[in-house]
Nucleic acid binder design. Structure first.
Lengths: 247, 247
DNA sequence: ATATAAGGTGTGAAAATTACACCGTTAAAT
DNA sequence: ATTTAACGGTGTAATTTTCACACCTTATAT
């Protein structure tokens, strides 16, 4: 839900007026929008900012901004995400570029969508560096509010790509703590794919890949039998993947 | 091989001089580059233009140009391909956006890569509408010359994506004539994947999908037993695909 | 001790994948 | 008429992968 709903209902109507009155327009720029997924309390979430400026002041939006003249897209993505959320060093990847003529009210803006999957770390604070984002928050993907601009479309496009990628690449591990249980892993797959999976088949298959390292350590602080912890072994994965490529 | 090799060896050295002397520079623009695949004489080919202007005059390049202020990326892709090659109505799709700072000598150019797979039609002439391309030619992917700008990288990126897509989507049929034999289809798969496939398994599998329509008509003009012709049945495919999605 | 909550395990049926070789048909060349 | 070159077309068995399915075990809290 938009943060200030009543005000915003009138927003579209006053659009052109507002723009002509107050906002700068520009000829043609690139921007980046970031789709950052996290996993917390069994739920898949994305990172949104609350906008502090027109247009779409007070709306939720994907963290995004304009690419500078002298930075590559990849560099811009890193900088922008940092400025808007305080998060750094994420290794985002681009998934699609959105170039409809009127997708942005202030001018021609072509935006490149980037995504990353990360661990939500209770410690790490989300604090925007610029004033342009009032704050950054994690929001469950299952109940997203209306987003500014065409960000809902961008989200849908990126999410469906990630869903497909999940079956081919080990992207899920980026969302989990370094040490995790198989049940946690399964819960994550279920959250992304939005369907139940069979426990025995899931475990059999995951272990059969051979890139999970079983740890001696066990889960702690649970009021039931503690589960074994596992790690994702990047080295083993690289070997397996390499073989697949050369086969 | 570049068209005028000797001249071009010195090109990079003289680069800045040339630019400062003659060429316009610009702040920041979007462009489109098109990767158009065709299949002819058992070989996979892409469409290249021979550049008529600096920079990279006389080099081969992917058909590409700058997006106008008032056209969407998809529309721009259609227009640009038409202007440079005379081809129309292709239904291209974007595959990646290239945004390194110095990828273009004249200024900051971020380019969106689009691809399409089409039938090479002996009848249809390739004739560029603008002078900026001297001509457009089909070139086998297995012996590409050095390309202008970072177009070799763009080609590699797009080609590897198409290769992967081949196993999930029926994109091959766009490259064949409407009526084709199973041997032709197999040859195409082999050309794209760059490996031999087993004839019996290939036919079994293709037919098992249920989206090929066997025609009464047979191949003509061959000096050996004529093969059955098949058509790709989009309606059946849509049904099958729909079921997969809803399952 | 007992209740609770999740951990952890195996088998059989069905489907998909892989490897593999020969005869048939046609047209052109002799 | 015969031969030759070139491709068309077909089936089976072994292996691997996928899928459906249910119960006992273990740790903790009461």
């Amino acid at each position: 839900m938009p943060v200030k709903h009543i005000k915003l209902i009138n927003y579209k109507l006053n659009y052109n007026v507002i723009l002509e009155d107050k906002l700068p327009t520009f000829e043609s720029v690139f921007s980046i929008d970031c789709l950052i997924f996290g996993f917390e309390a069994g739920e898949l979430k994305i990172l949104l900012i609350e906008r502090n400026d027109e247009p779409f002041k007070d709306w939720f939006a994907l963290p995004g901004d304009i690419v500078k003249q002298d930075e590559s897209l990849d560099d811009a993505a890193d900088r922008i995400l940092y400025e808007l959320t305080g998060l750094r060093d994420l290794q985002m990847k681009q998934f699609h570029t959105f170039g409809e003529v009127n997708r942005h009210p202030q001018g021609r803006v072509i935006t490149v969508g980037y995504y990353a999957l990360i661990r939500i770390n209770g410690q790490k604070e989300l604090r925007p560096v610029t004033q342009y984002a009032r704050k950054a928050v994690w929001h469950p993907v299952n109940s997203l509010p209306k987003l500014a601009f065409d960000h809902t479309e961008i989200f849908n496009n990126g999410f469906s790509k990630i869903r497909r990628r999940l079956n081919h690449q080990p992207i899920a591990f980026d969302l989990l703590p370094e040490k995790f249980t198989l049940t946690q892993l399964q819960g994550l797959y279920e959250a992304i794919l939005n369907k139940k999976l069979d426990k025995r088949n899931f475990r059999k298959k995951m272990l059969s890949y051979g890139f999970l390292k079983e740890l001696v350590e066990k889960q702690k602080g649970v009021s039931y039998r503690a589960a074994k912890l596992y790690k994702f072994d990047r080295r083993k994965y690289a070997k397996i993947f390499q073989n697949e490529l050369t086969a």
